[in-house]
């Protein structure tokens, strides 16, 4: 790879472009941050009147890891879908005729989704003190790492989907039949082990379940063994998310290469 410096530059500028545009559009930042805040304080606030705290964790605290997961899910998929926009508006051609490998394009896009997700996660972490959750530096670093892995894999998953979309019209279908079910069946809003058996099976097959559970392992470790706490050992969550990352990264590359 004599061109490693060149490819790195390309990856950097592809992700920089998306981050630049995200930061430029204040309304988009507000819009994307409004969703988790609404869920957290309106839904979470209302539900916490019904649901008793278990293991020292109240309902708002319980859904906080899920809100991080949701933020990553939406930001990653939305960022990846920009490939469809780029194709529709011709910009993808500008990228495809450049003397860079298709791999760099996919990595650049994945890094873009990851950095936009991470930026939103950082904003969300402002609420940690308000919610009465305590995290120390190692926990913060672990949280950052797990969020990053989840964001990267979900963006690759999004690229995989976007490569197969020929127009933007499919976006609503993706949102309603893929993204929303992934969110609801991830243990973000209610513990997976308390779901009806049929839904539980689907939730177990959902990679986001393990991403959210990993975050619970970091943030709600004190409630382990209760319905409010994590379900799996952290190592299982880590293994599943890592596996998901490798598989989606490989598939995203193959499918983008075929589509481009």
């Amino acid at each position: 790879m004599a061109n490693l410096a060149h490819e790195t530059k390309a990856i950097y500028v592809i992700s920089y472009r998306e981050l630049r545009k995200f930061i430029r559009e204040k309304s988009r930042i507000l819009g994307t941050m409004a969703r988790p805040i609404l869920w957290l304080f309106v839904v979470g606030g209302g539900m916490s009147r019904l649901v008793r705290p278990v293991g020292g964790v109240n309902y708002i605290q319980f859904i906080f890891p899920g809100m991080i997961g949701m933020t990553i899910l939406f930001a990653s998929i939305f960022s990846a879908i920009s490939i469809v926009w780029d194709r529709e508006f011709g910009f993808l051609k500008e990228i495809l005729v450049a003397p860079i490998s298709r791999l760099s394009v996919v990595v650049g896009k994945a890094m873009a989704g990851t950095s936009i997700s991470m930026l939103q996660v950082l904003i969300l972490l402002i609420f940690v003190p308000v919610l009465g959750i305590k995290i120390n530096i190692p926990q913060f670093l672990l949280l950052f790492l797990s969020s990053g892995m989840l964001a990267f894999s979900l963006t690759c998953f999004g690229i995989l989907v976007a490569s197969r979309m020929s127009s933007y019209e499919g976006f609503n279908i993706i949102m309603n039949f893929l993204v929303m079910p992934m969110f609801f069946l991830s243990g973000a809003m209610y513990p997976v082990r308390l779901m009806p058996p049929f839904l539980r099976e689907i939730a177990y097959a959902n990679p986001l379940t393990y991403g959210v559970d990993g975050l619970k392992n970091i943030l709600l470790a004190g409630a382990s063994g209760t319905p409010m706490g994590p379900e799996y050992p952290a190592i299982v969550d880590f293994a599943v998310v890592s596996g998901f990352l490798v598989v989606t990264a490989v598939l995203a590359n193959l499918s983008f290469r075929r589509a481009a």
Binding site: N3, A5, H6, K9, A10, Y12, V13, I14, R17, R20, E94, I95, A98, P99, I100
Partner: peptide, 12 residues
């Protein structure tokens, strides 16, 4: 400017 910068970096 950014459009051109994007291009410049893609071309190394």
């Amino acid at each position: 400017y950014e459009n051109l910068l994007f291009h410049a970096y893609l071309y190394g």
